[in-house]
Design a protein around this nucleic acid. Structure first.
Lengths: 148, 148
DNA sequence: TATTGTTATACTCTATAACTATA
DNA sequence: TATAGTTATAGAGTATAACAATA
């Protein structure tokens, strides 16, 4: 099979396209997609998310989360609150402004994403989403100790 | 829909996983995935590929292709040949060693990719490939001049 | 004038290691 | 002894601009 049909190549190409498109859509709100992902998660959380949990969900190193939260805090969109349960842990919570920016950002990003996926029907987008979710879950294959 | 179900996010996460896995698989051959993609394309080509064509197929800036070809040339895997048709153009062609390295690299990369996609059946992988190919093709939507 | 390859530069993303304060 | 957050650093990837040679 020719290289241009390689799933890894196509995935990388598609991902790059979507990231560029989303960054362009978010530029008006002063966000990039990585900062936006953190803001979205904390806005969806009831009591705030610890930086450790953010790192795990986003598959980022904790040190990267520090920088992203710093960015958002500098823009007045989130705050760090001490966790009542563990004094090592900081819960990241959105400010009022953070919630407002997130709402606008989501509208813009979703519209742009829909345009980028315009070649696919709604049903196909659902199929793609579930296939991707299953690829993402396979971090630790059951009996693939050989290559670790 | 929660952020973690966003297709752009899932795509970025999946792409990162596949790139990391492929880079790990290629490390023994002294390659990274971007160099490998150039090597693969020139090995598949009958008369060599111009750097401009490589940039277009891979969706890279021509200046990035210069660096990748430099890397491969430094490793003795490709050569630049003058095009008989256009003296501006350089055709990138593999060396004998380049072809041998590419064969081994492809075996390793394909095996690792198959493992990373192990959660999907062959049919599902085919579906994923075709969906991705259609997403990638939508660089210039028919009448979306508004956002350019 | 436009295109191919090239150099240069800056910024973003990724990967590691080491440190602190807590547990 | 282990974990959450932090700082620092280096390398890889991305994005632009400008230039020489050639068309």
């Amino acid at each position: 099979m020719p290289f241009v049909d390689n799933i890894g190549f196509l995935m990388s190409r598609a991902s790059g396209q979507l990231v560029r498109a989303t960054n362009a859509a978010l530029a008006d709100e002063g966000l990039r997609v990585r900062q936006y992902s953190v803001l979205s998660l904390v806005c969806e959380s009831a009591e705030g998310e610890s930086q450790r949990d953010l790192a795990e969900v986003l598959a980022l190193d904790p040190s990267q989360v520090v920088a992203l939260v710093d960015d958002l805090h500098g823009a007045g969109l989130v705050e760090r609150r001490p966790s009542p349960a563990d004094r090592r842990t900081k819960l990241v919570v959105p400010t009022e402004r953070g919630r407002a920016v997130r709402a606008r950002a989501t509208a813009r990003a979703d519209a742009r994403l829909a345009a980028s996926l315009g070649a696919l029907t709604e049903a196909e987008q659902g199929t793609l989403r579930s296939l991707l979710a299953r690829v993402v879950d396979v971090e630790l294959p059951p009996r693939a100790f050989t290559d670790r």
